[in-house]
Structures are given as C-alpha cells and as structure tokens.
C-alpha cells in the first residue's frame, strides 16, 4: 500500500468482550436474583421429575387409603395425608407439573398473540394500529379473572379449556409492551439504514426490529409466570379449572378449605408450594430486568 496506509491505520484490537459473561457477573452479584434463580431451578426440577419422585405414586393416579385419613405430618407423610388418605407431599409434587406447565402455556400463548398484535400495530401504524390497540384496550377493561371465568364456564372445565380461557385475558399486556418497543426501535438509526439498503418491510420487522425488543419481553414473561400460576390456581380454587383427581395446587387448596383449621396440614403444602414458585419467578424476573433492561433499573 501507499503512504496513506499509515494515516488510515486502524485502531488496535479491543479485547473480545463476552456480553453473556458480563450479564452473568452482574446477575450473580445480586443475591436476591441468585436466590430466585435457585428457586426457579427447583420448581423446574419438580416440574420435570415431581411425579416420578413422589413417595406414593399410586395416590397421584387417584388411589386412596381410607385407613390413613387425615394423618398429621410424620416421617412417612411429611405433610400429612388428606381426606382420602393420600400423601399430600406426593400430590403437591405431582401438582407442580400441572401448575407450572399450565402457567407456562398461558404465558407462551399470551406472548405469541401479544407480540403478533403489538408488532403489527406498532409497525403498520395508522388505522391498523388504531383498531388493534382499541381491541387491546377493550380486552383490558374486563378483569382478567372474570373474563377467564366466563370463557371457562362457556367451554367447560379441563386443562386445555382453562389455558385458552386465561390466555385470552393474558395477551393485551404483551401487545402494549411490544407496540411501545417497536415504536421506539423503529426510529433507531440502524432501522433507517436497513430501509436505505432496500430491505423489505418484513425483513425490517423480523430482522431488525423484533430481535431488539426481546429483552423486555423475556423479563415480562418471567415476572408473569408467577401471576399465571396464581391465576391457574385461582380458577382451580373456584372449581372451574382443572378438576380433581388431577392434582393441581389450586384444586388441592380448594378441597382442603373444608377441613380447616382442624386438618391444617392439607392446605399448608400446596400453599407453600405456590408461594415458593411465585416468589421465585418474581425474584428471577427482577434480576433479569436488571441485566437485560437497564432502562428500567431503579
């Protein structure tokens, strides 16, 4: 090259920076986030293996042991037995699978619908935006539990119907979030750059805008998991969600309600499990927000 090479000589290498490692470092620095992560890991573990590890698998399938009704906590039954003589711990462990999978399905379906609606509204703008967002507002005006109750009552009880029912009230939050993010990212310089190189609208949306809205969506999903689990339990509790004998935390609580306070242990395990899962997901969500979405930090 000529003598100009020296003038345009590039800067020396910056050290390779691993974004993930930095994020993990910051995450690990917060004890609460780590606690949340451990709690969620435990919940996930029981979701996968709860049914297999349960000490009395026959009770999960509906088996009863009338001789052992309402036994208080002991070594054999750490959380006692219920009105059918079933081991409460086994039921709660198996219930983890049902509750968490139901919660996860609700959040996933809500995210997919919400992202779709929000992304189209934010990207298209104009009357499409107007229609989609008024529809979102309309859905938001109906309290979630009431809407879910109405839909569940219309469709009848059952796992799938309940998930459909809750998901229908779940997406508007995501639609609003994603629309807002899309509107913000749409004005970024790199989106203009993509327009200038002739990228098609779908390419701009899928390649340039949506990937940059993922962080807040993930944060909201993890914060929402706890609420979704509570909602599933709530429907179970009032008797229009999952029906016994399928073990589900809300249903378990609902049944044990009749035997309070004499046989308090029947309610304790499902209540604690719910508290544990919801708390864990919330801590994790807060931690994720701190590392993924620095704008929202305190």
């Amino acid at each position: 090259m000529t003598d100009t090479a020296e003038h345009i000589a590039t800067e020396p290498e910056l050290p390779k920076q691993d974004k993930l490692q930095r994020a993990l470092f910051r995450f690990r620095q917060s004890r609460l986030s780590m606690l949340g992560a451990v709690m969620v890991a435990l919940v996930v573990f029981f979701t996968a293996f709860g049914t297999l590890l349960a000490p009395f698998p026959e009770h999960i399938a509906g088996g009863v042991d009338t001789a052992a009704r309402f036994q208080p906590p002991s070594w054999a039954h750490p959380f006692g037995t219920n009105e059918l003589g079933q081991d409460v711990l086994s039921l709660v462990m198996a219930g983890t699978t049902v509750s968490v999978l139901a919660g996860l399905s609700v959040v996933l379906i809500g995210t997919v619908i919400g992202t779709l609606v929000g992304a189209i509204a934010g990207f298209a703008g104009g009357w499409i935006d107007e229609i989609l967002m008024r529809l979102t507002d309309l859905t938001l005006t109906i309290p979630g539990l009431i809407l879910a109750m109405a839909v569940a009552a219309a469709l009848g009880p059952g796992f799938t119907n309940m998930i459909i029912a809750i998901s229908l009230s779940w997406w508007p939050g995501y639609a609003r979030l994603v629309r807002g993010e899309v509107l913000a990212v749409r004005e970024e310089s790199y989106v203009n750059a993509a327009r200038a190189i002739g990228a098609s609208p779908s390419r701009i949306l899928l390649r340039h805008i949506l990937p940059n809205t993922v962080s807040p969506i993930i944060v909201k999903m993890s914060l929402d998991m706890g609420f979704a689990i509570l909602m599933v339990a709530g429907l179970g509790f009032i008797g229009i969600g999952i029906r016994p004998p399928t073990p589900e935390w809300g249903t378990l609580l609902s049944v044990s309600r009749s035997y309070m306070p004499d046989y308090w242990w029947t309610a304790m395990a499902p209540g604690m499990a719910m508290f544990f899962a919801v708390f864990g997901f919330n801590l994790l969500g807060d931690g994720l927000r701190d590392i993924l979405d620095p704008k929202a930090r305190r």
Partner: peptide, 13 residues
C-alpha cells in the same frame, strides 16, 4: 445510492 449515518453507535443493529 447509499448512506452513512452520523451516530456509529446507533446505526448498527
């Protein structure tokens, strides 16, 4: 016709 924008921090995805 191509363009180079002002802010190199904002113009790369």
């Amino acid at each position: 016709i191509q363009i180079v924008f002002q802010d190199p921090y904002a113009s790369l995805n």
